[in-house]
Design a protein around this nucleic acid. Structure first.
Lengths: 296, 296
DNA sequence: GTTCCGCATGAATCGATAG
DNA sequence: ACTATCGATTCATGCGGAA
């Protein structure tokens, strides 16, 4: 097992506080279950991950058979339950595959089993994928959505709803339309706040809370190695469930999206990845986040 | 038990056929399970329904306690399995309630139990509600989606995918924007084809198959009762899974939306409703569909 | 600098063919 | 019979190069 840590200073200046915290970005090369055992009880504020789907990516990850999926995953969720703070949240991005013409039921069974472990199944968000995989079959349409299952340890958990409010109404449409391309890009940039300079000034004018449906595009061709989910996705949940300086965990890091976004948003993070190839890519992506603090 | 039947003639004229069929719209006042037993085996082409959601307050309409929901519903699904044709489809519109801070698991359990009955869980469509119920809670956002569970009796079933094709992305963005308001309204009209005059002319130019996410608004005008089940919803599935003259069943008819849409689209239908109040409303709504045949 | 157009690229799924 | 591999099908997105 190999561990890399990078450290940045985070300066928080408000009317009430003038604090300096350190933001650590740690990635671990090794088996998920083994690495988790080294993490302290009740230490994580947010777990967000997209585990390898059943039989998918079997060329890279050791493809897990659908019928064995629950059995394989439950020991891991037991560890996740241990390391999560009572105020923390676990977001699981997953989608069942089709098997012999039917949707497989392993995710339904997983939810039921996780509740027996002590998890609360608080909510199910939907990721509505703008650009889903194409294809045509006689008996089904393209699959354009994935589950984002929210689990908690306790009925009381931290949630910062204001941080993900969105502009509404005709007012927002007209203003957004007149924005320069640069401003729009800035809005979609990797900067922590999630709002570009101009848009962030509008906060409080005409904002609404979002719903439990996220409508995002997958990031396809833009990088060497494609990530499982777009940066928008962890960014949204990190804003919603953590504050700067909090600790985020992704036990299936892949190309490092969760760690990258955490670092950009001044959250500490731990990422675990079993494949050396992805581990290296993650390290490279994390190193490319530079000196953007404090930005939140 | 009371039964009302109305009958219309359906004329099918194609280059090959010149057929006349009768379209029957039958509504039954009575207990769902009891009424279902009078329906013949393998006689229904499409079952589509939105059963009374589980509710803690057992006094409300059809109020079934969450913990008893599966137990209550399984005898009904057994009958539905019996009456459905092997080529038919069952669409179940449902969403679990929040119970003590958690999403209740009765729907997950229901799916698992229905598979044991012999149902195939073919697909889960998502209804993404454009204008969902407003509200604010400290620990969750507005619920903007519902499940549309597709069950089948057999891996081979009838599916008429071309009937629900939609304009493609780029094309829709550039062209649809220039449409007059009248044209857009016409597109949303209740006419069976689902396409307004202008838009239907464009078929074949740039149409694509839809995905398994439906993005529809809830019907705002109809404030009479809880059935916030927009006509678009049954219309889409009736187009997708039936042909004119086929037989549609809704065992929880409510205010009659399924029967109304079936009649508008020249499909025969059977609707069952236990409450006299709703039964009367359904009858009135069905009677208001007049002489629109043949429209398909 | 814009806008427009072409092109590669996906957490897919089915059905047929091969071991 | 049962499993593994492969080709065919399909479309929103965002990139880069061109006008």
């Amino acid at each position: 097992m190999q561990i890399i840590q990078t450290e940045n200073k985070l300066y928080i200046n408000t009317s009430e506080n003038n604090i300096s915290k350190s933001v650590k970005t740690e990635i671990i090369l090794g088996d998920c279950l083994e690495a988790l055992k080294k993490i302290a009880d009740n230490s994580i504020d947010l777990i967000i991950t997209s585990p390898p789907y059943s039989d998918q990516r079997s060329s890279t990850y050791g493809g897990v058979k659908a019928d064995k999926y629950v059995e394989w995953f439950l020991p891991i969720t037991a560890e996740l339950l241990r390391v999560l703070k009572p105020t923390g949240t676990f977001i699981l991005n997953i989608k069942e595959k089709v098997s012999e013409g039917e949707r497989h039921t392993y995710i339904l069974e997983l939810i039921l089993e996780m509740r027996k472990q002590g998890w609360l199944w608080t909510e199910e968000f939907i990721w509505h994928k703008k650009n889903c995989y194409p294809g045509k079959w006689p008996n089904r349409f393209r699959d354009a959505w994935e589950r984002l299952l929210q689990f908690n340890k306790d009925k009381k958990f931290n949630m910062y709803q204001e941080s993900v409010m969105v502009p509404t109404g005709d007012w927002a449409k007209t203003r957004l339309k007149n924005l320069s391309e640069t401003d729009k890009i800035r809005d979609n940039s990797s900067v922590g706040s999630g709002f570009g300079k101009n848009i962030s000034n509008w906060i409080g004018r005409d904002m609404a809370y979002p719903s439990n449906v996220l409508h995002l595009a997958t990031e396809s061709g833009n990088k060497k190695h494609s990530a499982a989910y777009p940066k928008e996705l962890p960014r949204w949940f990190i804003k919603l469930f953590t504050q700067p300086g909090d600790l985020v965990l992704d036990p299936f890091l892949g190309s490092g999206t969760t760690s990258v976004v955490s670092k950009e948003m001044a959250r500490s993070s731990i990422g675990i990845e079993i494949l050396d190839e992805y581990y290296k890519i993650a390290k490279e992506n994390i190193d490319n986040v530079q000196d953007t603090l404090p930005l939140f």
